[in-house]
């Protein structure tokens, strides 16, 4: 029996940006494909497709993962946060605010991934040092900015988030 002819479908229920999602996926479908092509959230980008660049970073139960190389079925019962889930639709998240203010992006292709990785960092370490920022963000590649302004954006976001009453 050739298994490639057997259409195995897996029920997948998870929380996406705070909302319950239920669909059927094939075992080989990636989380990125489901997000972009099935759910229509195209903020998450595909670039290297091999866990190197970080453009596809989303948070799975709070941890940054490469959605390009994560199987969708593994999100079962979990919480997925993408760039679309950061802002409430009216006010930007402090990280988004900070990236704009500090010029943390140019073409913007890496930005969704940068911001999601930075979110994971600040959730874990609200006041990171420059060294800690560099270490954590090492796997997110930007071909435009030269990184300095990204580091400044994250420091700025850390300040914004630290101000009581300013949390998004």
């Amino acid at each position: 029996m050739s298994l490639t002819r057997v259409a195995q479908s897996l029920p997948l229920e998870f929380r996406l940006n705070g909302r319950h999602v239920a669909l059927e996926v094939k075992p080989h479908e990636t989380l990125l494909e489901v997000l972009r092509e099935r759910v229509g959230l195209t903020g998450t980008k595909l670039s290297c497709d091999m866990q190197v660049c970080g453009a596809c970073t989303v948070l799975l139960d709070g941890l940054p993962v490469s959605s390009c190389t994560s199987l969708a079925f593994e999100a079962r019962g979990k919480e997925v946060l993408t760039i679309e889930g950061l802002s409430d639709g009216r006010k930007l998240h402090p990280l988004q605010e900070a990236f704009i203010r500090c010029g943390g992006f140019q073409c913007g292709f890496c930005t969704a991934g940068m911001i999601m990785a930075a979110k994971a960092l600040l959730d874990e370490q609200p006041n990171p040092t420059v060294e800690e920022i560099k270490h954590f963000m090492k796997g997110n590649i930007c071909r435009c900015t030269g990184y300095q302004m990204i580091i400044e954006s994250i420091q700025e976001a850390s300040r914004l988030l630290g101000q009581p009453g300013k949390e998004a």
């Binding site: 866990q51 190197v52 970080g54 970073t57 799975l60 941890l63 940054p64 993962v65 490469s66 190389t69 994560s70 990785a117 994971a120 270490h135 954590f136 090492k138 796997g139 997110n140």
Partner: peptide
């Protein structure tokens, strides 16, 4: 372990 790969690969 802290030095392996990047945060995403370390998480998975």
């Amino acid at each position: 372990e802290r030095q392996i790969a990047n945060v995403r690969v370390r998480a998975s």
